[in-house]
Design a protein around this nucleic acid. Structure first.
Lengths: 219, 219
DNA sequence: ATATCAATCAATCAAATAATTGAATATTGT
DNA sequence: ACAATATTCAATTATTTGATTGATTGATAT
């Protein structure tokens, strides 16, 4: 009977959107989807969850408006519904970094090398790409690279570094990137390259942020 | 024993931040705090929740890093910890507006007059304020006005409109604003003013957004 | 038609969350 | 010291949420 205030009704809806991101596994799925459109099984494999569980989480996010799906033959492909989802994730990350002690602790423990690796900003990388004196390596898996990547980037997943070493131009400085600021792939890549005498640094974040910033891409 | 991946650990923390916003009442508290620093009892009264319940929700958000508190005598004052909290709320709102059918339905039902009221954008208002040909009315309660407001705005809560009517300059166009895009106070104010023959419009959103945009304010 | 595969659904159990109540703390004023 | 006030804490109950399992649907290929 009680007709509630419209504001309360709206907050209930917005809270439902927030609930849909408020889970460890769903954040991981969103990070994966930020690399490009993916089907359920691949997402399940990449996150280590069961297919049924993955499907349920995806549907929950779809109901909340975070993602959309498209059926193609036997496969259902999911994708982010809106660039605002990236804004949402960015805000969450920023708040966590600045105001949650645990986050700082984890970063210090696992990403200590961060400072030493002197990450390259997006604008700096863009400038150096124009000068052509930098080699950009995308460390993500092939399928993510194929969904979109930086111009002139070459795709070298960690396990393929050995095989590709000989082909690398030893004169250019290398900049490696992957899924985002806390994706460890580019950290590992830079460490391995430096161990072999290359001059290598990380991009400050990853593909989703580059794309969201409206910088030039190859799709 | 299993030491989990750092990314997983970070996502757990970010999910905790998201959980802290993922509740109707907590969103309402955040909206209230976006107007300025407030103590527990006032927040409880404004949201219609019990003091104990309000306190618990506030502590939950504090643990998650969304808000901070400060003790002054008998009172505990809470405030948003970071402008990124406003970004988070803005992203939630945007996703809800664009991708949740219910939101659209609620807006159509309760805010139908929205289009007719032709809201004024922040930049348009700013320009007209410089020309000095507009009267800006802040429709929020006194305490929220006192915590900060637009330059040259006068504070007229709805219940005081009658008493203040005579003092209004009938030649200027009026722009009313309150807490945000879905705050009904300014809608009501514009309707009442128009019923009395004034030329009146709404600001597209409210005080938190104006402040977040870095526009000139009076604090 | 039948087998195969991707994805979803339905049912279950375990765990986490929210609101309520009354007691407990901390600060101020008498 | 004592009472009054603002806030927090602790315990309880009802509700919601998440993971798992196995069955089911829908599309493709043989």
């Amino acid at each position: 009977m009680s007709s509630e205030s419209p504001k309360r009704l709206l907050f209930r809806q917005f809270a439902a959107v927030a609930k849909a991101v408020a889970h460890e596994h769903r954040l991981e799925l969103l990070e994966a989807l930020a690399q490009g459109e993916r089907n359920v099984e691949l997402l399940a494999n990449r996150t280590g969850m069961s297919v049924a569980n993955t499907s349920q989480h995806l549907q929950q996010m779809r109901r909340a408006g975070l993602i959309e799906s498209r059926r193609e033959g036997k496969f259902t492909f999911y994708r982010l519904s809106d660039p605002a989802v990236l804004d949402l994730l960015a805000a969450l990350t920023r708040i966590g970094e600045r105001h949650v002690g645990e986050v700082d602790k984890i970063v210090r423990t696992y990403f200590l090398s961060r400072d030493e690796l002197e990450p390259v900003s997006r604008s700096e990388l863009l400038a150096r790409m124009k000068d052509g004196d930098v080699l950009v390596i995308d460390v993500r898996p092939q399928d993510e690279f194929a969904s979109g990547h930086l111009p002139n980037a070459i795709n070298i997943p960690l396990e393929e570094l050995e095989a590709q070493l000989a082909t690398l131009d030893t004169k250019k400085e290398i900049v490696a990137y992957c899924r985002g600021a806390y994706c460890v792939l580019s950290f590992d890549m830079v460490e391995r390259l430096r161990a072999r005498g290359f001059k290598a640094r990380r991009l400050e974040d990853g593909w989703p942020e580059w794309q969201a910033a409206g910088l030039p891409v190859v799709v």
